[in-house]
Write a protein that binds this DNA or RNA. Structure first.
Lengths: 278, 278
DNA sequence: AACGTATATTGAACACTGTTCATCTGTCAA
DNA sequence: TTGACAGATGAACAGTGTTCAATATACGTT
């Protein structure tokens, strides 16, 4: 009787994973308990990766442990290694899976600056939707298909805008380094993504900044601690805008005449107001 | 006889750490062997941190293990916990120690863009001199004194240049997020700092990029794999330059009239060349 | 229809990791 | 000389990633 509910072997095994929570009431009554028999093919790489994403979404990437993952799948830890070479590969798969969520479709009629800004925002949004996943980028090289597709999406508008090989590459890295650096979070200053929402952490930092000696950190104290915590969205948006503006400025000023030089020259007429005093 | 070589307690214990490899020949001859007696006060927090830095410099931050660190110090693992609360604090101490190497001195007569560029380069240089240490920033909040001093150093020229509170904060984050994001390395594309020098990795990536399907990644294949690996220095320099240019552009165009809006508006006269086709 | 094979899973183990704590010991002060 | 005390010890605990012989199962073949 265990044969009845076998799904078609060719379909994506994600269907198997969602079989228990299927909408049809029939499956609720007639599906045998999964734990009894038929333990043969219930584990798939997709199911492992999906559950890994669930663990990360629930308790962060540091909680993703082979044993815990195996326990959630109702399986012994060693069983995972038949579907995943090691934890590093699991990380790679999770990362590529997350990056696949980035919508790469672009309207070519938009300005290239707008297109790049859109991509940056989408990438950041996806990365921050899976807390901690961006941290994987620190350890692993993202050379999965979706990573490369993302790179292609960035490079397309740049090349179309007139950036040549080297300059397009540099601009691409600038955008991506910034976006990921931002998403990885806590870059020298901000607090970890997971902790930034914790009210205890916020009040703790509040007190911390109020206790700083103003003589050693005058500007820091003057600007206040809100710079640290508030408005992550605004921070990223403003930064990305400045960055794209800089790229546009670089494109218009340098027409790739200096192959080895800097792509942008300092503006000739530098009218500095209040440049002297404090 | 074990009393002779005790250094003055008030001096920085870094001197103790480098006593064995000191330049003076006298210490080489007259210093008694450390391992015999006098195990009483030979362990200090500074010695622990210094040895941790040595381990990181030698085998990377992942090789920094309490047991290994203890073994190198000729001590049992539990002994470390009398000088360091836990491994997180050890990371914090290491990080702050590294950041203390950043030279924060700036010539106020220089343009503010030049000052910020200098700081960015110095920060990156120090971070990449200690491979993997930048990765600590992913996990820990850098609120040590040297981190804050670094923030102060960035904020000073910005404020002097005319950036007001919020804008100065945003610009500061932009610079620091980018620099650290770059130093953390391997942002979506590049290879880990430690691996990028490995010739095997390079040829491996070379073959990998040559094997890519050109129909799916036309721009990627056209640009070639040299974009990935070559000239990290140039990548950072060009990116930082674009970034500072964008900041200057933002400062001159927006005179803080829009408190909630974007600091930079898109250029009104958009002359697009080759904007249509690919 | 029964058999043998291929294979996913098991259970246990190995070598690690960070961390704690009762115990011991060497040093300094009284 | 004695006491107190701070720091090092040794051992243990719980947890980590990973490997591997043995097992049990479903499938393809005969």
């Amino acid at each position: 009787m265990a044969q009845r509910h076998r799904t078609a072997p060719s379909t994506r095994a994600t269907a198997v994973a969602s079989a228990a929570t299927d909408g049809s009431a029939a499956s609720l009554w007639f599906d045998p308990p999964i734990d009894d028999h038929d333990r043969r093919h219930q584990l798939t790489r997709e199911r492992v990766v999906a559950e890994a994403l669930a663990v990360i979404a629930q308790d962060g990437v540091q909680a993703l442990t082979m044993r815990r993952l195996a326990a959630r799948l109702g399986v012994v830890p060693g069983a995972l290694y038949h579907h995943v070479r090691n934890k590093q590969q699991l990380h790679d798969l999770v990362l590529d899976n997350v990056l696949s969520e980035v919508d790469l479709h672009l309207d070519p009629s938009l300005r290239w600056t707008k297109q790049l800004g859109l991509l940056g925002h989408r990438l950041r949004q996806v990365l921050e939707a899976h807390p901690g996943v961006a941290g994987i980028l620190k350890t692993r090289d993202p050379l999965g298909p979706h990573s490369l597709a993302l790179a292609e999406a960035f490079l397309g508008p740049l090349q179309a805008a007139g950036f040549h090989d080297r300059d397009a590459g540099l601009a691409f890295f600038l955008l991506v380094d910034y976006t990921i650096g931002f998403a990885v979070g806590s870059a020298l200053t901000s607090v970890n993504e997971q902790r930034v929402r914790d009210p205890a952490t916020r009040t703790q930092l509040h007190q911390f900044f109020r206790s700083l000696p103003p003589d050693r950190f005058p500007t820091l104290v003057a600007l206040g601690e809100h710079v640290w915590l508030d408005n992550r969205d605004e921070r990223f948006t403003a930064g990305l805008q400045v960055l794209v503006d800089g790229l546009e400025h670089a494109r218009t000023s340098s027409s790739s005449q200096h192959p080895g030089g800097r792509p942008t020259a300092s503006t000739p007429t530098t009218r500095r107001r209040r440049a002297g005093g404090g």
